[in-house]
Amino acid sequence: MPKVFFATDLHGSEMCWRKFLNAGRFYDAEILICGGDMTGKAIVPIVQENGHYTVTVGGDTQQVEAAQVPDVEAQIRRKGYYPLQMSVERLHELDRDPVKRAETFQQVMLDGVDRWMGMAAEKLRGSGIRVFVCPGNDDEMEVDDVIRRSDFVELGEGRLVEIGDFTMISTGWSNHTPWNTHREETEEQLGERIEAMAKQVPDVSKAIFNLHCPPYKSGLDEAPAIDADMKLLHGGRALRPVGSTAVRDAIERHQPLISLHGHIHESKGAVKIGKTLSINPGSSYEEGMLMGAIVQLDPKKGVKSYQLVNG
């Protein structure tokens, strides 16, 4: 009876990744699934000048000595940002040049993912715990290559994976968002992508649909409404469903045992869509809190139990 621990949208938080790797032993789970959006959203420059380092964390600018830099870097990684030491000249260059900025971003993100793969192998090799990762819409395509190179962590994207008696299909692609991120496509294309995998599943009653984007109007997809200028409306109290109709159609049509989602951090929940238990554990990566779902699978009962946790 495999026990699955699912977490998602870690967004570069190294603390959450460390907790994720420890979740197997902590919750007695044999399967760890990271649902996507592993990479961070910001680089925090640590600027070397005049014998000290200047850094802005949480809006507060501070000067630190060289010996304090590792602590500052750890603090920044914990929040999901990438610390990057640089000169004043390099800072201004990145500020001016969007291409160089994008290249730098990609480099630090891929380095970060590579380091995470190494941590996973070091910590869990020989433990009997399997780790699956399926990059999400915020993760650049090159992230997949880094995961493929890992000899321990398994890439989920676009594959059918056997987990005991169960079959998991995965994709981190989403419907279009206002941010035009790396893995977005039309509902029709997303539907075809899911269908290509779903039709190969031998027994959908034992299928796990690991789809980053939540189903439309499921309660797992409610995000604060924004205007064209990306400004939150009505004090952030107005929520709108932003999930995928293609994901919903796939769930309604195939009725897998369980569907795992993320993407919308605020929309933590577990709902039934027909026979399918759909879960979005939410994300609080900025707090260093790993929100996750423990699912106890049973070959006869299907889902024996599930629990959302804040680890």
Partner: peptide, 27 residues
């Protein structure tokens, strides 16, 4: 987050990065 001449961080385009809500709305 710092002065315009000295950026405190670089953001990339990613889901969920929105401008803050209006204090008046929450007020």
């Amino acid at each position: 987050t710092g002065a315009p001449a000295r950026p405190g961080l670089f953001l990339r385009n990613a889901t969920g990065l929105v401008k803050s809500w209006s204090t008046f709305d929450a007020f």
